[in-house]
Simulated scan of single mutants.
Amino acid sequence: MSKAERKSETSARALRRLLKALNEPGARAAPSGLDDGALVVAAPRNGITLVRARLPVATGEAALAEGLVEGDRESRGGRLRLTEAGRAYLRRAAAAEVALDPFRAQHGEFEKRPGEEGARPAFVNDAESPLAWLARRKGANGRPFLDWAHVEAGERFRRDIEQAQILQRVTANWEVSAAGTRRCGEAGVVVTEIAMDARSRLARAFDAVGPELAGLLTDVCGYLKGLEVVESERGWPARSGKVVLRIALDRLAQHYGLASAAVGPAQAKGLLHWGAEDYRPTV
C-alpha cells in the first residue's frame, strides 16, 4: 500500500469514527477550545455529558463538505450533528463489513440475528418487519402491544421460514453448496440439510398453533404483509388483525417455551435439585 493509500484509509477510518460517535443520541461535535486543532464529540449518558471521540478538525470539515454532518441550529459555537446522509453512509459502511448490498442496507435497519446450530447468522431488516412496528406501538395502558416473547417467537418463526426456502424466489440462488444437500423429488431443486431441519421445525410450529393461525404467521412473518393487507385479503374487520396475531404469537411463544416472565408453580415443573450422592429428599 502506497503512502497516499495509507493516508486515504486513515482519513476514511477517522470519518467513520466521527459519524459513529455522532450517531449516539444527543451527540454533538465542536472544536475543543484548546487551540489544538481537535474536534471533540460529546454525548449525554445517564445525565452526564461524556466525550465519545477526539478527532482532527479536518475530519469534521471533510464530513461537512460531503453533507454527512451539518451545523446545529439549536446551539452555538459551531457544533455539528449527524445528517440523514451521514446515517446512510454508516449503514453502507456496515453493510460492506457483512457482505450486504450497501445501497439496500442504507434504506433499512439491518440487525444480525444468530441462526440455529450449524446455520449462518441472518441479517434482518427491522424497518420492513411488521412485528418490529407493532413492538414499538403502545396500547391504552402505555405498554407495548407486543412483548419480548412475542417478538422473539415471531423472529424465530421468520428465520425458520427463510432457512426452509419455502417462499417463492424471484432471483437465482448462488449460495447453495454441493455438500450436505438433498434433492427434492417433486421439483428437482437442491435443498440443504439446514433447510430440511428448518422445515421440520416449521411443521411442529404449524401443528402447535393450528392451520389458520399458521397461515397468518406465514403472511406476517414470512411474506412481511402489513395487517391492513391481511385484513383486506381475509375479509376481517379493521384493526382485528393485530388481536388475532397476538393470539397466534402467544401460542407460538408457548410452543417455543418463551415467556416474558415466569409466574406460578407450573413454571417450575422442570426444575431439578442438585445434591451430593448421599442426598435424600425430605418427605
Rank of each mutant, 00 (worst) to 15 (best):
P265N: 02
A238V: 15
L202A: 00
G264H: 01
A187E: 12
L224C: 09
I247V: 13
V220Q: 10
G235M: 00
P211Q: 01
V244S: 09
F206E: 06
S200D: 08
A276T: 12
A266Y: 06
G215L: 00
R251D: 14
L217H: 07
T218Q: 04
L227Q: 10
G188K: 06
A214V: 02
E277A: 14
Q254M: 15
W236E: 09
G215A: 01
G210V: 04
V209E: 06
L258I: 12
A195P: 00
V189N: 05
Y223K: 12
G257W: 13
L258K: 13
G264T: 02
L227V: 11
S200H: 05
R251I: 08
H273I: 15
V220H: 12
L272N: 14
R204T: 07
E228L: 05
K269D: 13
V244H: 11
A253W: 11
E233M: 03
L249V: 08
V229R: 10
I247Q: 14
L249A: 08
T192P: 02
V189W: 05
V230D: 06
L213A: 10
V244P: 10
V220E: 09
G257S: 13
F206S: 03
E231W: 07
H273S: 15
E212K: 04
A203Q: 03
A187I: 10
V190A: 06
S260Y: 06
L202K: 00
S232A: 08
H273A: 15
A187H: 15
A248E: 07
G270N: 14
G226P: 04
R234W: 03
A253S: 14
A198W: 00
L271M: 14
R234D: 03
A198K: 00
A198V: 01
E277C: 09
L202E: 01
V230H: 07
V189K: 07
L249M: 07
E228H: 03
V189F: 05
D278K: 07
E277W: 11
G241P: 13
Q267G: 09
Q254A: 15
Q267C: 09
L224E: 12
G270S: 15
L245W: 11
V243W: 07
E212Q: 05
G257L: 14
M196S: 07
S240C: 12
G235N: 00
V243Q: 10
V189L: 08
L216N: 05
D207L: 06
H273M: 15
Q267F: 10
A214C: 03
D207V: 04
D250F: 09
A261L: 06
A205M: 05
W274C: 14
E228T: 05
K242F: 15
G241I: 10
V190T: 11
V244E: 12
R280M: 06
S240E: 14
G210L: 04
V244C: 06
R246Q: 09
A208I: 13
A276N: 07
E277G: 09
R251G: 13
L249R: 08
D197Y: 02
V209S: 08
T192L: 01
V229K: 11
G222T: 04
